[in-house]
Design a protein around this nucleic acid. Structure first.
Lengths: 221, 221
DNA sequence: ACCTGAACACCGTTCAAGT
DNA sequence: ACCTGAACACCGTTCAAGT
């Protein structure tokens, strides 16, 4: 059967995480799924944190945006953020993974970070500002990828999903209207949350527009 | 001695979380700290998740912004976001807590959410847009509160902290400059990260400016 | 109503030992 | 180099029982 390598371990871990949530990714469970002893994994990963870093690195693998000095930096930034969101969306547990590991320890994530730093500099932000901006952007992209869809309760039938939605709606609607007036009134759009596409593009727009506005406020464009 | 109530349990939990990180907040540890049996806590909280929700609720307690129909919605939104960040900053583990519980289950957080929904509506966004916007804003505020400071390694001496910084800097600087050119060059500002105040105001500005730009793009102001 | 004792089914990790 | 067995020190939670 397939050899036990770092890569197959990471992929199996992501598979479990996607299907059942990250809390189901356990050394022992992972070993069982791989037909091996728990301690076998410690040969490939010193501890569970390094396994998580491996998972994070695998998620961002293959995501590269070549610097395109032709197009304006706004478009390049937008491309970076929306591309990152799209890549993370391939795995339901992606955002969960990335929010529990130290980004600085994930090589492939560092590459994305480096690119965004470069773009900020190119946009004539100062060093300090560029650091802040790239942090906001990447954090924002991860938050977007954690947004609707990939919601809790991974792996349900359509029936269960619908029932789940209905339950959350009546939950909102049965709140005291004097203390939560808008939530009660907007219960339907709140639980449905619009399409995932809208959510993403709207979010990316918000981030990029925010940066651009900060840039304009300081003088040139 | 002091009676064991939900409130003292929650406060003790936050104290441990602030000092040693959320992963140190354990039912058994908590019970020990309170001089009680682990099972005693199950009388006050059905399970650990409900304890976490209690912690989150306690964090946002006392944060109210009264609707001020005089000032423009942009200012009110800014006030809301920056106020929330300020409140969360009182507890180093706040962002950690809020990112692991379901916001919908936290009454005091729902109140903030309701207010932001009202402001979005007031700004003439549609229902769907208002839902999205308020999600972005609150998510953004939490992300800001999770930013620098309250960093990993809670509870270190100044000496240790300085050494920690130095270590992260040389870590950046020893990266291969051909694959991470900007990170290597900007190692110093990256690890120092500017003042916490700058980080917050910059971040709040970014969020509010992003919303405002979306609003302008659609017609009126 | 409020708390304890004992037990269950899990964790991550180490360390010596096997091949 | 790569994996196993046995053990350690932890978890959250249940359930019956005490006051």
């Amino acid at each position: 059967m397939g050899k036990l390598t770092r890569e197959v371990v990471v992929e199996q871990a992501l598979e479990i995480g996607d299907a059942e949530g990250l809390q189901a990714v356990t050394i022992r469970r992972l070993a069982q799924e791989l037909g091996v002893t728990p301690m076998a994994l410690y040969w490939h990963f010193k501890n569970k944190e390094l396994l998580a870093i491996g998972m994070a690195d695998h998620l961002v693998e293959g995501f590269v945006i070549e610097e395109d000095y032709a197009s304006p930096w706004q478009d390049q930034l937008r491309e970076l953020v929306s591309g990152l969101v799209r890549v993370l969306r391939r795995h339901p547990c992606a955002a969960e993974v990335l929010s529990e590991v130290d980004h600085m320890a994930v090589p492939n994530f560092l590459r994305v970070w480096d690119t965004s730093l470069g773009l900020a500099i190119q946009a004539r932000f100062s060093y300090e500002e560029s650091c802040l901006i790239s942090k906001y952007l990447l954090q924002g992209a991860i938050a977007l990828a954690a947004g609707p869809m990939s919601r809790r309760s991974p792996g349900l039938s359509d029936q269960e999903r619908a029932e789940n939605l209905r339950l959350r709606r009546v939950n909102f609607q049965s709140l005291p209207p004097d203390v939560y007036p808008h939530i009660v009134e907007m219960a339907v759009p709140l639980v449905e949350g619009g399409s995932a596409d809208l959510y993403d593009t709207f979010g990316v727009d918000l981030l990029v527009a925010g940066i651009e506005s900060l840039s304009l406020r300081r003088g040139d464009g």
